[in-house]
Amino acid sequence: MTKLKCVAIDDEPLALALMEQYIAKFPALQLLKTFEDAISGAEYLKQNVVDLLFVDINMPDITGIDLVRSLDPRPMVIFTTAYKNFAFEGFELEALDYLLKPIDLNRFGKAVEKAQEFYQYKQNANQAAPQESLYVYSEYRMIKVNVADIEYIESMEDYIKIHLSGEDKPILTLMPLKKALEKLPADQFKRVHRSYVVAIGKIKSIQNRKIKLAQAEIPIGESYSASVKELTR
């Protein structure tokens, strides 16, 4: 099992000590350093390879959000905070998760599990291995989406809605439709309209320039009609 090299940064000594205790309980994590000073922590991160960063949002010198924004490349990030209202700026940083203080051990464990899964996902992507899932940023968290559950994807200008089989509420994420299609297996998904990508295996019928799925009817764009006809041969 690959250990995730991690760093924890928090200006509150008690919160940092608790984080250190929690990290020690998980064999998948290897704690490299802890910092009460965000600036020192940032310098360490710029000079060392780290897989996962636990960082408090509200710190006196620089915020956790500004710290993460300064990193290039960035490790996986889990923010910790005492406030329920998360800063919107964290959205662009694509944090894996947010942990609300006082942090519950079980909730911490779920965040660690998410980090392990996302790390493996990135490894598979780098090796061009078949992807059974993809990760998107929604509701201030990285969310795992099983490819097999996707029925269709709908473009909403800069956003997309990912519609899942058996789910009434789609997943909304900031991503161009073209980029979403690039992340999916080419033999399982097809763009059929300027605003729609459908899962080929979820198609019930194709008639009158419409594709019938279990939960929706999708129009076929004029420029995509020829490629859609190939599905019926």
Rank of each mutant, 00 (worst) to 15 (best):
M1A: 11
T2M: 12
T2A: 10
L4E: 08
K5H: 14
V7Q: 02
A8I: 12
A8Q: 12
D10G: 03
A15N: 10
A17Y: 14
L18I: 14
L18K: 10
M19C: 12
M19S: 10
E20I: 10
Q21G: 07
I23T: 00
L29A: 08
Q30S: 15
L31C: 12
L32E: 15
E36H: 04
A38W: 00
I39V: 15
I39A: 14
A42M: 15
Y44K: 07
Q47T: 09
V50G: 08
F54G: 01
V55L: 07
I57D: 04
M59W: 13
M59Y: 02
P60N: 13
I62W: 01
G64Q: 08
V68M: 07
P75K: 00
V77F: 00
V77C: 13
F86A: 04
G90W: 05
L93W: 09
A95Y: 05
D97S: 07
D97M: 02
Y98Q: 02
L99Y: 03
L100E: 02
I103Q: 12
I103H: 01
I103M: 09
I103S: 02
D104W: 06
N106Q: 11
R107N: 11
G109D: 02
V112M: 04
E113P: 05
A115M: 02
Q120T: 05
Y121A: 07
K122Y: 06
N124I: 06
A129G: 05
S133K: 15
V136H: 02
Y137C: 10
Y137D: 04
S138P: 13
M142V: 00
M142I: 04
I143Q: 15
I143G: 04
V145E: 10
V145P: 03
Y152M: 13
I153P: 14
E154N: 07
M156L: 15
M156W: 10
D158E: 15
I162F: 12
S165A: 12
S165R: 15
L174K: 15
L174Q: 11
M175P: 08
L177K: 00
L181K: 12
L181V: 10
K183L: 14
L184I: 01
P185G: 06
K190N: 06
K190Y: 06
R191M: 10
V192W: 01
H193F: 01
Y196V: 01
V197Q: 01
V198L: 03
K202I: 07
I203E: 00
Q207R: 15
R209S: 12
I211D: 01
L213F: 00
L213Y: 12
A214I: 12
Q215D: 03
G221R: 14
Y224K: 12
A226D: 10
A226C: 08
S227R: 13
K229V: 06
